[in-house]
Write a protein that binds this DNA or RNA. Structure first.
Length: 598
RNA sequence: GGAGUCGUGGUGUAGUGGUUAACAUGCUACCCUGUCAAGGUAGAGAUCGCGGGUUCGAUCCCCGUCGGCUCCGCCA
C-alpha cells in the first residue's frame, strides 16, 4: 500500500507516530514560509504542514502543488499548537509534519469545485461525473447506498435467503412498460429483451424449490424519465415459498426498520409501519402512496354538504359525486386579503388538476367569531355544527372543499396535500414515514379495450374469499397485493401469487386472454406451474428510491454513480451512439431514417 | 408525443434594444511562519448555447434548433 493510514482516521492518540498518507489535494493555504495542505481521501481530510525552515526542498516542491493533485507524504503526526485546533474537522486535533513528499500525479484545474458545495449545471455534472462523484455529498450517498445493500444482503442471508442471478438477456413481454430490445446475431430478425424485473424468473425459482430467493437486480424500462425514474434501476427482488402476506410484510418491515435505525440518523414516525387499505388511502389522502410525515387528510362530508344550500354541492351529491373537506390548521387566521390570495393560489392548483373550483371556510380564531368565506352562508348553524364535529374543527382552521368526479377529487386532495406540506413546512426532513397499502382491487376496468386489466400483474392471487367474485363482480375482488410507500414515494410492491391453475385460467379469461394467447405468451410459466408449484409470494423494492429518501436527496440521480439524463443519454460516454455499418449488418438491421417533420 | 423553464469569463450569478458586458469565486504571478472558505497586490480570462429573422443597431424582441431540468402522457 502507498499509505499506512487513511486521511480522516488520525487522532490525538496517533501523535508522534510516523505515517504515510496519500490522496488528493483538497485545498492549499500558502503562507509563504509555511504551507498548509488539506489532504483528502475517501475517509476524510488531514492537514499537512510544510515548513520552509526545516525542509526547504519539500517546501519548494510544495509551492507548485495545486488542487486535486495526487500526492503521497511521509510525515509525523503531532498535536496542533495551543489555539490552532479545528473543531470542524474530525482530525482537527492533529496535523502531519511533512518529512517526505512525492507527487503521484498532477491534475488539470477541474471544471467545477470539488471542495465546495454549489449548485451546478446538471449537464456539467453528468459530463464530468467522475469529478462530481469526488464531491463529499456524492461520496456520502454512494457509500450509504453500499451500506444499505450490504445490510440487505446480510439480513436476508441470515434468514436463509439465497442470492441468485437471473438473465439480463431475456424475452419481451407484451404487458407493462416498453422493453429495451437487443438484436440477435444468431437469429436474424429476433430480439432479446432486457428484464423490466425478474418477475417470472423468481417465480420459476420457487417452482425450482429454492424457497427463499433474493437478488439486487438491475431492471430496464424504456419509458420517459422522472426525478424518481431512470431507464435502468435497481430492485431488491425477493420471493418466498410457503408464505402468507403477513410473513412478507413482517420481513420487509424488519429489514427497513433496521436499515433506518442502524444506517441513518432519521426518525421513523410510523413504528410499526402504518397500514391502510387502498380504499382508505384514496379516501383520506387521494393517493396510494401518501406522505404520512404530516397529518393533512380529507374527510367525506357528502351527506352534510348535500343538505346545504350550496347548489354545486347538492347537485354533485345528487349525481353521486363526493364532497371532500380538508382541515388546514392556522391558515384560517389570515387576514381577509391574505386569505383571498391563498385561496386563489390553491384554487389555481386545484383547477390545473382538473377541478372546477375550490370552496373554503375560515374558522374564527375566537369562540363565537364569524365564519369567513363565500360558502359559509349556505350552511345553517345546525349544519355547521355537524360539519365542524365531523371534521374535528379547531379555531383558526381553514377548511377546503373539493367536489368533483371521484378520481379528480382524489387527485386534487393529493396535489393540495403535497403543496401545503411544503408551503407550510408541515414535516421534519429528519423523519421517514413508511405505510403499507394493502387490499388493492385485483382489476382496473380498461374502457379503451373493453376488458379488465390486472392492477398489479396477472399472477397476483385474489383474496381466497373473493374468488367467487371473479364470476359475479370482478371490480370488487381484492388482490393479495401490497405496496410500501415512504414519504410519498412507492418504494416496494409485491403480491402473493396464484398457484392454482383454475384461478389462473379465470384471470386470463377476465383480462381477455384466450388459452392460445396465454400459451403463446406465458407457456413456459403455465407449463412450469403444472409440476408442483408451492404457494409463494414476493416483493420488489426500489433500491435507488429508498437510498434517495434515506440520503435526503430530491432526485434518484444523486444516488446512482452514473445516471442518465432526462433524455436517457449518458453525457459522459456519449451513449447511445451510432455504430459501424458492419455491426448492423451482422445483426441484420437496417436503419430507417427519421421522417422529416415538414 | 406535449407543456413549462434555464443556457452570459473555468464555476456560480447580475444585467441591458446602443454599456469598456458587472459581481463573487476559481485561475496565473508576486508578498506573507499558524492557516483551515486564509489574507494582500497585480493580471489574464466572454464569438452572452447554435442558426435564422425583426431593427440603423440584438446578449436582450421573434422563430427554429441543440442541451439540462421539472411536469403531463407513459411507467402491468
Amino acid at each position: 500500500m502507498l499509505k499506512t493510514h487513511a486521511c480522516g482516521e488520525l487522532r490525538a492518540e496517533h501523535a508522534t507516530q510516523e505515517v504515510v498518507l496519500a490522496g488528493w489535494v483538497h485545498r492549499r493555504r500558502d503562507q509563504g514560509g509555511l504551507i498548509f495542505i488539506d489532504l483528502r481521501d475517501r475517509m476524510g481530510i488531514t492537514q499537512l504542514v510544510i515548513n520552509e525552515e526545516t525542509h526547504p526542498e519539500i517546501h519548494a516542491a510544495a509551492k507548485d502543488i495545486r488542487n486535486e493533485w495526487v500526492i503521497q507524504v511521509k510525515g509525523r503526526v503531532r498535536l496542533r499548537p495551543e489555539g490552532m485546533i479545528n473543531p470542524n474537522l474530525p482530525t482537527g486535533d492533529v496535523e502531519v509534519e511533512v518529512l517526505g513528499l512525492s507527487i503521484l500525479n498532477r491534475a488539470k484545474t477541474p471544471p467545477f469545485y470539488i471542495n465546495k458545495e454549489e449548485s451546478l449545471d446538471e449537464s456539467l455534472r453528468l459530463r464530468y461525473r467522475y469529478l462530481d462523484l469526488r464531491r463529499e455529498r456524492m461520496q456520502r450517498n454512494i457509500i450509504l447506498r453500499h451500506e444499505i445493500v450490504r445490510h440487505i444482503r446480510n439480513y436476508l442471508s441470515e434468514r436463509r435467503f439465497i442470492e441468485i442471478e437471473t438473465p439480463i438477456l431475456f424475452k419481451t413481454t407484451p404487458e407493462g412498460a416498453r422493453d429495451y430490445l437487443v438484436p440477435s446475431r444468431v437469429h436474424p430478425g429476433k430480439f432479446y429483451a432486457l428484464p423490466q424485473s425478474p418477475q417470472q424468473l423468481k417465480q420459476l425459482l420457487m417452482v425450482a424449490g429454492f424457497e427463499r430467493y433474493f437478488q439486487i437486480a438491475r431492471c430496464f424500462r424504456d419509458e420517459d424519465q422522472r426525478g424518481d425514474r431512470q431507464p435502468e434501476f435497481t430492485q431488491l427482488d425477493m420471493e418466498m415459498s410457503f408464505v402468507e402476506r403477513e410473513d412478507i410484510l413482517d420481513l420487509v418491515e424488519g429489514m427497513f426498520t433496521s436499515i433506518v435505525d442502524e444506517l441513518t440518523d432519521l426518525e421513523l414516525v410510523t413504528r410499526p409501519f402504518k397500514r391502510l387499505s387502498y380504499q382508505e388511502a384514496m379516501e383520506l389522502y387521494g393517493s396510494d402512496k401518501p406522505d404520512l410525515r404530516y397529518d393533512l387528510h380529507a374527510v367525506d362530508v357528502s351527506d352534510i354538504a348535500g343538505r346545504s344550500g350550496f347548489s354545486i354541492f347538492t347537485a354533485n351529491v345528487e349525481a353521486g359525486k363526493p364532497v371532500k373537506a380538508m382541515r388546514v390548521p392556522n391558515l384560517g387566521a389570515e387576514s381577509s386579503s391574505q386569505l383571498k390570495k391563498i385561496h386563489q393560489e390553491l384554487e389555481g392548483l386545484a383547477k390545473s388538476t382538473g377541478a372546477k373550483g375550490l370552496a373554503y371556510m375560515a374558522i374564527p380564531t375566537e369562540e363565537g367569531g364569524e365564519v369567513r368565506g363565500p360558502i359559509g352562508k349556505f350552511f345553517s348553524p345546525e349544519l355547521q355544527v355537524e360539519l365542524f364535529e365531523r371534521l374535528n374543527v379547531q379555531p383558526s382552521d381553514l377548511l377546503l372543499f373539493v367536489s368533483d368526479e371521484r378520481q379528480i377529487t382524489y387527485e386534487v386532495i393529493d396535489t393540495l396535500r403535497r403543496h401545503l406540506a411544503t408551503k407550510l413546512n408541515l414535516y421534519d426532513d429528519k423523519t421517514v414515514a413508511f405505510v403499507w397499502i394493502i387490499d388493492f382491487p385485483l382489476f382496473e376496468w380498461n374502457a379503451d379495450e373493453n376488458r379488465w386489466d390486472p392492477s398489479h400483474h396477472l399472477f397476483t392471487s385474489p383474496y381466497p374469499e373473493d374468488i367467487p367474485l371473479l364470476d359475479t363482480d370482478p371490480a370488487a375482488a381484492r388482490g393479495l397485493q401490497y405496496d410500501l410507500a415512504c414519504n410519498g414515494f412507492e418504494v416496494a410492491g409485491g403480491s402473493i401469487r396464484i398457484h392454482q391453475r383454475e384461478v389462473q385460467e379465470k384471470i386470463f379469461e377476465l383480462i381477455g386472454l384466450d388459452v392460445e394467447d396465454a400459451r403463446q405468451k406465458f407457456g413456459h410459466m403455465l407449463e412450469a406451474f403444472e409440476y408442483g408449484t408451492p404457494p409463494h409470494g414476493g416483493i420488489a423494492a426500489g433500491i435507488d428510491r429508498l437510498v434517495m429518501l434515506l440520503a435526503g436527496e430530491p432526485n434518484i440521480r444523486e444516488v446512482i454513480a452514473f445516471p442518465k439524463s432526462q433524455q436517457a443519454a449518458d453525457l459522459m460516454a456519449g451513449a447511445p451512439s451510432e455504430v459501424f455499418p458492419e455491426q448492423l449488418r451482422e445483426l441484420h438491421i437496417n436503419i430507417v431514417p427519421v421522417e422529416d417533420k415538414n
